[in-house]
Design a protein around this nucleic acid. Sequence first.
DNA 1: CAAAACACCTGTATCGTTACAGATTTATAG
DNA 2: CTATAAATCTGTAACGATACAGGTGTTTTG
Lengths: 345, 345
Amino acid sequence: MDNKKSEGQAAALPPSNERPTLKTIAFMTGLGITTVSRALKDAPDISAETKERVRLVARQIGYQPNRAGVRLRTGKTNVISLILSLEEEIMGLTSPMVIGISEILASTQYHLVVTPYRTQGNALDPVRYVLETGAADGVIISRTEPKDPRVALMMERNFPFATHGRTEMGFSHPYHDFDNERFAYEAVRRLVEMGRKRLILLQPPPYLTFYLHMRGGFERGVRDFGATAVPFNTVNLDNSLLDIREAAEGVFSGPDAPDGIVSGSGGGAVALIAALEANGLKLGQEIDMVSKEPHMFLQWLRPEVVTMREDIRLAGRELAKAVIARIEGIPPEELQTLSYPIPTE
Amino acid sequence: MDNKKSEGQAAALPPSNERPTLKTIAFMTGLGITTVSRALKDAPDISAETKERVRLVARQIGYQPNRAGVRLRTGKTNVISLILSLEEEIMGLTSPMVIGISEILASTQYHLVVTPYRTQGNALDPVRYVLETGAADGVIISRTEPKDPRVALMMERNFPFATHGRTEMGFSHPYHDFDNERFAYEAVRRLVEMGRKRLILLQPPPYLTFYLHMRGGFERGVRDFGATAVPFNTVNLDNSLLDIREAAEGVFSGPDAPDGIVSGSGGGAVALIAALEANGLKLGQEIDMVSKEPHMFLQWLRPEVVTMREDIRLAGRELAKAVIARIEGIPPEELQTLSYPIPTE
DNA sequence: CAAAACACCTGTATCGTTACAGATTTATAG
DNA sequence: CTATAAATCTGTAACGATACAGGTGTTTTG
């Protein structure tokens, strides 16, 4: 009769040797499941002593909340989705990005889910998927456009996200970006310092925001330092290295050939070098180049190239921190960071 | 009174404008929730007409099962976990691997979750985590060892997984591997054909399985083709490019310097080239090299290097297919694939 | 034509967690 | 010494899906 008390939530079942749940802890401590739940989240209506006891037992038996249970009840997924193009990247930007994000998430409850999309035109699909199915608490996207429909959609739904790259949409959102304006500007400066005048830029595709930055920096440099921009628009960083090489061979062998190159990526630089050398040109002699350098390839195999590093792993870390902060309600204005070209010596 | 019938599961609630659930479909079709559930999984005790009706409505309103609900009830997570070292890779193997896996998972219900570990010694942690928390239905690991404790653990628990790389543990499990034995063997053949005799191998760290393969192929080649293996054990593919370069400079400048190089990675090759050129050697003259080529770097910047490609994206695809097949109960023996060096151009 | 078989559908309980609305005990107020 | 307020704790319901054990109506069997 008196054991009514022990017939409550807590004592209903033996501990069992399965994965521990709140019920297990409730049984072990003699408390109710609700109490245990609230104790673990440090609720104000639980006594300090009880909290301590619950935490102790929880740690002891290695309790980890069941993600499906939490997710079903609260809608919180504890997932960050990285949205990736399957076509992306000649030269794995993805690796350091994934690693950087993982580094940050490792010390949180968040898991990283990679959500791919097939082609350029379908970039909105995975975002819609996440929004509609509630597959994640926050999203990281890259390849941003000045008016980015993905950003518009997530803003409208008030869904936490961070972008690798800026937009120009008249409101602020979390981002991390590399200062491509400065990169190109400094690149032009260096080339002019080396006596080069007729410059080409291997640039991003025109619809991406960082095209504007890189192009802008390039043109400002050309103006400020008194050089000439030679057109090179038939290919961009999204083309295959083979296409870039082919297009470059055309430019180098044509009239008014350039004598200076700014390459927006290390992979592209290799194609450009192959092209210019196929035309009998030599770096450091008839022509010079400034490029981003993902590894040590250019530095060691073509030391004549002036290289600057872009830290993608850092970008991953910053983006991860930004989405999480956004999820936690930090205002977007405080979650915008820029990184700068790192000179390689 | 008669409306008892309509007070059952189905009619309890209006459709609401939230995300549709089984209840929504039940309401719309006038069926019970259970019936809808079973209809959607094509159970035999539901009439063909009902199934058709349910499927139609489900498609119409864009029903997608709630993952948390399924997971909580059935334990099925619909997640594949890719376990990654945060230190991994000088030259992003991860990118094409992630892309390859995603390509396959995109047409399934599976999501890809990246689960990192910090350092070599902690490789078992993420595996334990997945096993203990049931975070995934299957796991993909790389950097396998001949006696791999992760493999042992997952076999013991009968947990589906696939490895990038083989093991030597006396039982079979799903894997995909690159034939490093053949790579090294062919590399030696090529070098000997070019008249080289004193060969070094930039090899994997000795505790990884593919060390045995690459080393084995190298030594078999040395024997078969009559060359000499020059020791080069102070560094391996896990060292930084700087360390490799430094060690290589020592070997090239020492007595009995090698005249042929087999490099197990493209990144390593760059370091070796930097080293040998710093010693005044020239590829194709005093020395030759065969290397894996991740991109077009070597091919275009040092065409004297003989390169072979390893298709990591393919590995990702194969591994994804293998885990899923394993989850579906296909015997491991049928899930073992090997890929072969791809001669470049 | 009653009994058994069949075809098809449905309610209940449950997975683990948390929001919410009490319940119980003890301390404070009047 | 009763009424109120704190301080703690707890049961119930619900999130969405599914396993299981019926239920109902129709058809077949003997």
